[in-house]
Design a protein around this nucleic acid. Sequence first.
DNA 1: TAGCCCGGCGTTTTT
DNA 2: CGCCGGGCTA
Length: 742
Amino acid sequence: MKEILTKNLNPSQSEAVLCTEGPLIIFAGAGTGKTRVITHRIAYLLSLGVKPWSILAVTFTNKAAAEMKKRVASLIPHSGADVWISTFHSFCAYFLRVEASKINLNPDFLIYDFADQKNVVKDCMKELNIDDKKFKISTITDKISRAKDDLKFPSDVAAEAERAGNFLGAATAKIYELYQKKLERAGVMDFGDLIMRAVSSLRKYPELLKHYREKYKYIMVDEYQDTNHAQYMLIKLMAGGHSNICVVGDDDQSVYSWRGADINNILDFEKDYPNAKSVKLEQNYRSTPKILSAATQVVKHNNARISKRLWTQNPDSESVSVLKALNENDEAEKIADLIYPNTYNNKYKLSDFAVFYRINAQSRAIEDAFRRFRIPYAIRGTLRFYDRAEIKDIMAYLKLIHNPNDNISFKRVINIPKRGIGKTSVETLEKFALLKNMSIRQAMPFAQEAGLNKGPIKALNSFAQLIKNFSGLKENNSVKSLAEKVIKDSGYLEELETENTPESKVKIENIQELISAIDDFERSSSNDKSLAGYLTQISLISDIDSLDESNGRVTLMTLHLAKGLEFDNVFICGLEEGLFPIGESAFNHKELEEERRLMYVGMTRARKRLHLCWSAERKIFGKTIWNMPSRFIAEAGFKDEFNETEYNQKQSLRSFNRKKAEIIRGDGGAPSDYEITKDEPLYASDRDSSPYKIGTLVLHPVFGNGKIVEKSGIGNDLKLVVLFENGQWKKLLARIAKLTLI
DNA sequence: TAGCCCGGCGTTTTT
DNA sequence: CGCCGGGCTA
């Protein structure tokens, strides 16, 4: 076995594979064969006689989990398939369901997605009389999700808000509390709950923790840089006994902090597990040296990173270039010009090209140009199959059949197709239900008492009968035939057929696709074929459109979605200050570094050619803007694109406008803590006269030489984050730490 | 109740 | 520039 491994792997790869005991961190640079290492490591463990069911490997996406499973199974045909490889969320969902009785939980819970969450928050705000113009629903949803990522209960959020005198936080806490009650009452969990509940259960029940520590003797985590605090804690708890924990990741590819990911989990791993071994994978097998060097140069501008030296043996060629355009249409046409197959004498297929952009709105100009040039393209990630309205409608019917008390699903389908039950009727009934502490479904028989009109009452009764009939069918019918009955008996299909528009035809096709997906699900032997089993699986697998759609097409997508993929030819477009780095991120150290990592991710997707595109003028959201080329172009080594003097002029203008905007915005209302933290670096750097600036080199009596990489607060409260030569990080209070400037 | 119009708003979104 | 949600009217 060892021989096979070493034959397949380079020295650092095999070093990582052979290190099986104790904590191990693998820094896997872009294109360095990360998946190969993980799968070989699992195979090696199995070859040592480790039982497959005592290995746990967690990833973030179903795609990654499936890929890993496949590769492990092909490396070790007999037992490879028995290794538990799954996403964090499906692992936790499984855990919670299996242990439900021990942790006082109803195992029949369903999972709410983002749209459901927003609906619940909306209901909560209405109920609490909180104006949704004052606090945006998405802001609150986000705050609640972040709180769960951080393992914070409503009381924690409330206490924090109180301490900081923060209105938004206080509102969030109140809403969060009610939100949680509603979720519990409906017997559902959101994504954050899955992880948080698993962690709190392991904490609360020591014997359970002990059991899992013994069960999974070897734990591996992929994309560790993307873990949030709750996920970090979950792993830390489970690995607590044996410490056979292996994490793989790349701090330079951490681009999801806005979703709760904490880059410090990877940066601090060696602090967390003091006897940890660290292996760096630095040989890149993907890109040309020029691409690799350009990408490295960019990311080198970041301070918050572990230093590494990527190299490659790949042959070089003229592989990175800058494309300057007059406006967004010109940019798109120039890209189209370069892609047009004749340009490359059919050297490449269309699927060898990808266009990345920072925001989805940029795709329009590119799509228009591609249509004019007749270049087939596929956009990835805009609207997922399970996010389509017609699919969500049918799913809501199924969810309601599973759980009649699911108010969100109830409200979704009560008047779809139209049956004469309008907004006011539903609202009145809901208020009544709330008053009587019932679900809306339970309140239906009391429609008259609630004060509804005759018409709606009649419609309501027949709707109640409809759902009752469906519920009666759920025991003796497959999910597929249940779904078929739903679309027929509800009149949903009929309404679409009568509509008979191109749109309605597509919807019908999608519904047919859903039915066949359900059929596939039921034919696959390993699944729990109950309605609940199906609904859970769907909530956790909202897989993006089938892969073959990108065959024979150029791929268009956001930079975030590009992570993990690779293409021969890559265009990164919209490389302009204000768009990429986006918005005000250039004024915030942390945000700028994340933008830079995103740039790094985009660049390292390219195998053969990389085009960096920027446009002097751009119309976005109906407004024309004139931007400077992105600093990232200069950082990649194309200095002539970037005029420093001009940039500085614009920057001071920007910060001036920004402050002006704040003054205008200042309505004396509640200060939002979001804005305060965002503003901090700008104010701090503008106002304070302290000698501590970001980038300043300092000497600490204990830790030695270091560099200031972050600062917050002013005066006595000035806090500095210093990265020391030994790679350690310290957060220091400037007035206490005895720092000398060097 | 349903359909229309107007105004506000717009970064990224693995589960 | 387009989308979505809220409010108004038939």
